[in-house]
C-alpha cells in the first residue's frame, strides 16, 4: 500500500469486547438508557452507606485518647483526600480514551469529573486545615500532604478553567483532557518532590493520623470511603446524563426522552 495515503475514517474497529463496550457507551441514547436504570441505585447505596458510616464514626466510635473528639473529622477528610486523587486518575483515564477514540460520552464524563474532584480536593483542604487548628495550633501548615492537595486543586482548576475558556464544547473537552493527561504524568513527580521538599525543610514531619487505629475507628472510615465512591459514580452519571440531553437537545432521541418524561397533562 502506498504509505502516503491519508485516510480519515470515523468507523472504528469493533473486535475487542472491552472496546466494543466502550463504543456502546459512546452511543448517547444507549448510554442514557443504560445508566438511567441504575443511577437511582447508586444514589440509594450512597445514602445508606453514608448514614451508616457517619453513625458508626460520629456516634459509635470511641474518642481518641490523644485528640479527643476532633479526630472524627478524619471520616470526611481522609476519604475526600483519597477521592480527590482517584478522580484525577479516572478523569485523565477517561480523557485518554476520549482523545484516542473520540468518544463523546467519555469526553463528557471526563469533564464532569473535574468539578466533583475539585470539590473533594477543596473538602480535603478545608477539613485538613480545620483539623490542623487544634492539633498544630494553626489553620495552615505547609505539610507535605496538604501542599500536595493544594497543587492538585490547582491542577483541577486548570482543567476546569481551560474547559470553560474554550468555545466549542467538544474541542474544549479534548484540550482539557490532554491537560489532565499531562497533569497525570506529572502528578507522581509533584507528589514525591513535595514530600521530599517537606522533609528537607522541616526535618520532622507531623503526621495527621495516629499510628494505631482501633478497628472500631477504622470500619467507619472504610465505609465512608466506599460511600464517597458511590457518590462520585452517582453524581458523575447524573451530571453526564444532563449534559448529554443539553448537547443533543435537537436530536430525535432527546425529543423522545423528553416526551416520555413529560406527564400527559403538560403536553
Amino acid at each position: 500500500m502506498n504509505p502516503d495515503t491519508r485516510k480519515m475514517k470515523t468507523d472504528r474497529p469493533r473486535k475487542n469486547p472491552l472496546v466494543m463496550f466502550i463504543h456502546k457507551l459512546g452511543s448517547p441514547p444507549w448510554f442514557y438508557g443504560f445508566t438511567g436504570k441504575f443511577v437511582p441505585w447508586l444514589w440509594a447505596v450512597f445514602t445508606v452507606l453514608t448514614v451508616w458510616g457517619l453513625y458508626l464514626g460520629l456516634i459509635k466510635a470511641p474518642p481518641d485518647y490523644l485528640q479527643g473528639e476532633i479526630y472524627r473529622i478524619m471520616y470526611i477528610h481522609v476519604p475526600a483526600a483519597w477521592m480527590s486523587m482517584m478522580i484525577y486518575v479516572l478523569m485523565a483515564g477517561m480523557g485518554f480514551i476520549a482523545l484516542i477514540w473520540r468518544i463523546r460520552t467519555m469526553e463528557i464524563m471526563a469533564m464532569n469529573s473535574a468539578p466533583i474532584g475539585a470539590a473533594f480536593t477543596l473538602i480535603a483542604l478545608a477539613t485538613g486545615s480545620l483539623w490542623g487548628r487544634p492539633t498544630w495550633g494553626t489553620y495552615w501548615v505547609w505539610d507535605a500532604r496538604l501542599t500536595s492537595e493544594l497543587v492538585l486543586l490547582f491542577l483541577y482548576l486548570g482543567v476546569i478553567g481551560l474547559f470553560k475558556a474554550m468555545d466549542e464544547p467538544r474541542k474544549a473537552a479534548r484540550a482539557a483532557s490532554l491537560l489532565a493527561l499531562v497533569g497525570l504524568v506529572n502528578l507522581p513527580i509533584i507528589h514525591f518532590s513535595v514530600k521530599w521538599w517537606n522533609t528537607l525543610h522541616q526535618g520532622s514531619s507531623i503526621s495527621l493520623t495516629g499510628s494505631k487505629i482501633d478497628p472500631s475507628m477504622l470500619w467507619p472510615l472504610l465505609i465512608m470511603a466506599v460511600a464517597m465512591k458511590f457518590y462520585y459514580a452517582a453524581n458523575l452519571i447524573t451530571r453526564s446524563r444532563v449534559t448529554l440531553l443539553q448537547q443533543d437537545l435537537r436530536k430525535s432521541w432527546t425529543r423522545d426522552v423528553i416526551e416520555d418524561a413529560t406527564p400527559e397533562r403538560i403536553l
Partner: peptide
C-alpha cells in the same frame, strides 16, 4: 485538509501531500 475531524463519514486521500 485534515485540520478538522469529520463527525461522521470518511474520506481517502491518495495524494502524498496536500
Amino acid at each position: 485538509a485534515g485540520f478538522l475531524h469529520p463527525t461522521s463519514g470518511n474520506y481517502t486521500c491518495q495524494a502524498p501531500s496536500t
